[in-house]
C-alpha cells in the first residue's frame, strides 16, 4: 500500500543482510578519552533492542553514530543496509530519532513543529497538516496543540518529540532514554506510544538506565559498560543466567535463623544475619512448598515467605561487577 508520506522514505525490505541495524567493532574517542571500545550488535527488522548501561557507558554515543550525527573512529554501522558514514543521506530517509534533549522548537506551537517537519519531509502542506493532527491525537496532545512548546511540561515535550520523530513513519527508530526524568504517568504514556510502534512493526533501538523498562519493552537486551558489550540476550535468557526464582524466608531471631539454615543446608541457603532472612534458589512453587513443609515438621514457622523473579538489576549488577577491577567492587 502506498503511504501518503513516502516521498522521502523507503522501506527496509530490500536490505540484503536482513538486519535492520548492524554494528561491527564500533569505536569512538573524544580527544584522548575512548568512549566506545568495539561495540557489536544486530537488530532484526520489527524488533525492539534495549541498550542498557550506566551513565557514561557509551549509549548516547552509539545512538548518535547510528543516527548519522557522529562519525565513528573505527568499525562499521549500517541502518537498513545503509552505511551511516558513506550513505548517510540514504540512511536518514529510514530513521527517526528522539534524543535526550528534546529537539523541537520552543517558540513554535506543537502543531507548527510537526507541520514544519512534515513539509521538510515533502509531504505537501495539506498532508503535513493532516499528519500533524494524527500525531497530536496519537500522543494525546490535542489540547496543547496550539500553545508554544516552551509552555509544555517535560512529559508533553517528550511526547511531542516522539511525535516529531514519527512524522515520516520511519522504519527504524532510535530512542535515547525516552523516559528519563518523567513522572510515572508521563512515563506510562511514552511506553504506550512505544508499544504502538512495536505493534506497527517498527524496528526500535532504545537506550535506558531503567532495567524494568528494558524488561517491559525489549525483545533483546544489550548491556554495555565502559564502551563494551558485556551481555547480549533476551530479557528471559539474561535472567536465567543469573538464576531461577528466589525465595526469601524471614525469621524471628538469630536462633531460629540458625536452625532453619542448618536444616536447609542442602539448598545452599544465603543467610543474612542482619535482616534475619534465608535466601534460597527454587525451581518451582512446589519446591517452596516442600521447604516450608520441612520447617513445619520441626515446628518452625517463618514470619514471611516471599518469592521473586530475579530482575535485570541482578543481571546488571552481576555482569558489570564481574567485569570491573576488584578495587571498585562494592564502591556504591
Amino acid at each position: 500500500m502506498q503511504t501518503p508520506y513516502a516521498s522521502r522514505t523507503r522501506s527496509t525490505d530490500e536490505v540484503p543482510s536482513g538486519m535492520a541495524i548492524e554494528v561491527h567493532g564500533l569505536t569512538k574517542s573524544f580527544g584522548e578519552v575512548p568512549v566506545l571500545k568495539g561495540i557489536d550488535l544486530e537488530v532484526q527488522p520489527g524488533k525492539v533492542l534495549a541498550l542498557l548501561g550506566p551513565n557514561g557507558a557509551g549509549k548516547t554515543t552509539t545512538v548518535r553514530i547510528l543516527a548519522t550525527l557522529l562519525r565513528p573512529d573505527g568499525g562499521r554501522a549500517l541502518v537498513g543496509g545503509c552505511d551511516v558514514v558513506t550513505q548517510a543521506a540514504q540512511a536518514r530517509r529510514l530513521i527517526g530519532l528522539t534524543g535526550q534533549e528534546t529537539s523541537v522548537d520552543g517558540l513554535l506551537t506543537g502543531r507548527e513543529n510537526l507541520t514544519m517537519l512534515g513539509r521538510l519531509w515533502r509531504l505537501g502542506t495539506r498532508a503535513a497538516e493532516r499528519r500533524a493532527e494524527e500525531l497530536l491525537a496519537l500522543m494525546d496532545l490535542q489540547g496543547a496543540a496550539d500553545r508554544p512548546v516552551r509552555t509544555y511540561s517535560g512529559g508533553m515535550r517528550r511526547r511531542l518529540d516522539l511525535a516529531a520523530s514519527l512524522v515520516a513513519a520511519p522504519a527504524i527508530m532510535f530512542l535515547d532514554e525516552p523516559t528519563t526524568g518523567l513522572d510515572p504517568l508521563a512515563r506510562q504514556k511514552v511506553w504506550d506510544a512505544i508499544g504502538d510502534l512495536m505493534g506497527k512493526g517498527t524496528t526500535v533501538l532504545l537506550t535506558t538506565q531503567y532495567l524494568a523498562e528494558a524488561d517491559l519493552l525489549a525483545d533483546r537486551v544489550v548491556v554495555i559498560d565502559e564502551g563494551r558489550v558485556i551481555v547480549d540476550g533476551s530479557p528471559k535468557s539474561l535472567k536465567r543466567q543469573v538464576g531461577s526464582e528466589r525465595a526469601e524466608l524471614a525469621f524471628r531471631d538469630g536462633h531460629e535463623l540458625s536452625v532453619a539454615a542448618a536444616l536447609l543446608d542442602d539448598n545452599h541457603p544465603v543467610v543474612d544475619r542482619e535482616d534475619l532472612t534465608v535466601g534460597l534458589a527454587i525451581d518451582n512453587p512446589w519446591h517452596l512448598h516442600a521447604i516450608l513443609g520441612r520447617l513445619r515438621h520441626i515446628g518452625l514457622a517463618p514470619l514471611s515467605a516471599t518469592v521473586s523473579q530475579p530482575t535485570l538489576d541482578d543481571v546488571f549488577i552481576a555482569f558489570t561487577e564481574s567485569q570491573r577491577p576488584e578495587a571498585t567492587k562494592g564502591a556504591e
Partner: peptide, 13 residues
Amino acid sequence: TEGLMDRLRSMPI
C-alpha cells in the same frame, strides 16, 4: 545548543 539541529541533521534535508 538546544536540540533542534540534531533533528534537522538526522533528516534528509
